[in-house]
Structure formats: structure tokens, C-alpha cells
């Protein structure tokens, strides 16, 4: 695992806050994610995970504080080329085939010609969907759509992957296979930031950040967090740090 305070963190958040209509969704978040890390943002729904993801990607702008991605201050249009993104909902065009979806997004990232064909086949092979390449997305199952979304995120070989709830609504077997792919990507040097509210997934991350009510309550490796709170599972650690159960 990399030292999170290494000279060039991939993501650097410094005291960021975001409010919607007077209600604070994120409050003073400071965090660094190092190169090659698999970082998990853990928190119940409504805790601000997705808002944080949107600030990191530059889809949204923080009211206060500084967001830096790969050293550049966000939001910045050219930086949108530098990461792969998988949204919480499967943002796919159901009328089109998987290949047409991939071609569309590939073109948006500036891929064309033979290179695009190559990347489509390679990304679909990673998520094991190659034989369903020419099926319309409307005929895909929920799990297949999730994997196709991941393939789109991988398409332009980004050095950073930002995944919002990549395994939500997916059966355990498929979840295992997606996690195998994520860990393999990490081993090949890709930095990954993902959100989850599944506690056992947090155990597989290099480090996790616990979010509750828009505040980052703790950051550390799963083992570290368990040791600090004297608990046996991440779930217990989360409850201990958060100061009581709340769903």
C-alpha cells in the first residue's frame, strides 16, 4: 500500500463543504488518496458519498475548500479525460446495443478507428461480456448492465477509476467477480475510489473513509480501524466511531 501522504496524491481534498438549499451535505472534508490505492468511501445512504464523488470528478463544485485531482484544481474540463467513471445508476441507452453504447462513450473520450475496436473488445473481455457485445442493452440483466457500465469506465484506460456503488443490486456471485476485476485493476497500478454501504466490501479496500452526515469520521486501513476501536468487524468499528447505530 502506498503512503497516503506521498508527494503526489491522486486526489487531494482540503476542507471542502457543499450545501444544497441551506442544508449542509458535506462539511469540512479533508482527505488524500495516494497513487495505486483502492480507497473505499463507506457510509449509509444519504451520508454524502455521491456528492463527494461528484466534487472529486468536477461534475459539481464545492462551496468551500479545494479539490485537486492529479495535481490539478477541480472542476476543470480537461481533467474529465483523466478518470473513468461509473455512476450509481446504470446510465446506458437501452435502445442501443452494448457495442453502440461503447462506441458512443469511446468517441466522447476521443477514441476512434481500430484503437476503439481494440479497447471495446478488451474492456468487454475484462467484464466477461464479449459474447453479448451486439445485444441491445434492454435485453441485458441488471448485473450485465452494471458490468457494461464498468466496461465503459475502463474504455479509455484511465489511471484513476471512480465508481459510485459499483456492486449495488448485484447478486453475491457477480459481486465476487466484479471485485476480482477491481483488485486485478489495482494490482496493475490503477487507482480506484469507490463508494459502498456494504461493510464486508470495505474490508477489501486498502483504506476506507467513514462518512456520516456529511462528515468524515475516520480514515484508515480496515485493520487499523478495527484495532483502534477494539472491534472485530468493520461494521462494529463503524458503529463505535459513529457513536451509535443509525440506518
Amino acid at each position: 500500500m502506498n503512503d497516503p501522504l506521498s508527494p503526489s496524491p491522486v486526489v487531494e481534498l482540503d476542507g471542502i463543504s457543499r450545501a444544497f438549499g441551506g442544508r449542509a451535505v458535506l462539511d469540512g472534508i479533508t482527505l488524500q488518496v495516494g497513487r495505486g490505492e483502492l480507497f473505499g468511501l463507506l457510509g449509509p445512504s444519504g451520508s454524502g458519498k455521491t456528492t463527494l464523488i461528484k466534487l472529486i470528478t468536477g461534475i459539481d463544485r464545492a462551496d468551500r475548500g479545494v479539490v485537486r485531482l492529479l495535481g490539478e484544481r477541480m472542476p476543470r474540463l480537461s481533467m474529465l479525460q483523466r478518470f473513468g467513471y461509473m455512476a450509481q445508476s446504470d446510465a446506458l441507452y437501452a435502445e442501443l446495443t452494448a457495442k453502440e453504447n461503447l462506441m458512443f462513450f469511446g468517441a466522447l473520450y476521443g477514441l476512434g478507428g481500430v484503437r476503439r475496436e481494440e479497447r471495446i473488445r478488451s474492456a468487454m473481455a475484462v467484464v466477461d461480456l464479449l459474447e453479448h457485445l451486439n445485444k441491445p442493452v434492454s435485453a441485458y440483466s441488471g448485473g450485465m448492465k452494471r458490468r457494461l457500465s464498468l466496461a465503459i469506465a475502463l474504455l479509455h484506460e484511465p489511471e484513476l477509476l471512480i465508481l459510485d456503488e459499483p456492486t449495488v443490486g448485484i447478486d453475491p456471485v457477480l459481486r465476487q467477480s466484479i471485485w476480482r476485476e477491481l483488485l486485478a485493476l489495482r494490482d496493475r497500478g490503477t487507482t480506484l475510489i469507490l463508494t459502498t454501504h456494504v461493510m464486508d466490501e470495505a474490508d477489501r479496500c486498502d483504506r476506507v473513509g467513514l462518512i456520516r452526515d456529511g462528515r468524515l469520521t475516520a480514515v484508515g486501513s480496515p485493520a487499523d480501524l478495527k484495532a483502534r476501536t477494539g472491534t472485530a468487524t468493520i461494521e462494529d468499528a463503524f458503529i463505535a466511531i459513529g457513536g451509535g447505530a443509525r440506518v
Binding site: 470528478t57 467513471y85 446510465a91
Partner: peptide, 14 residues
């Protein structure tokens, strides 16, 4: 409403 606009705007498109 289907989320594809958000996804679209997470790419470098102007």
C-alpha cells in the same frame, strides 16, 4: 432523468 446526462457530463464533452 435516466442519469445518462450526468454520465455524459462526466466525460470531457463541452
Amino acid at each position: 432523468t435516466t442519469g445518462t446526462l450526468e454520465r455524459l457530463l462526466a466525460t470531457p464533452i463541452r
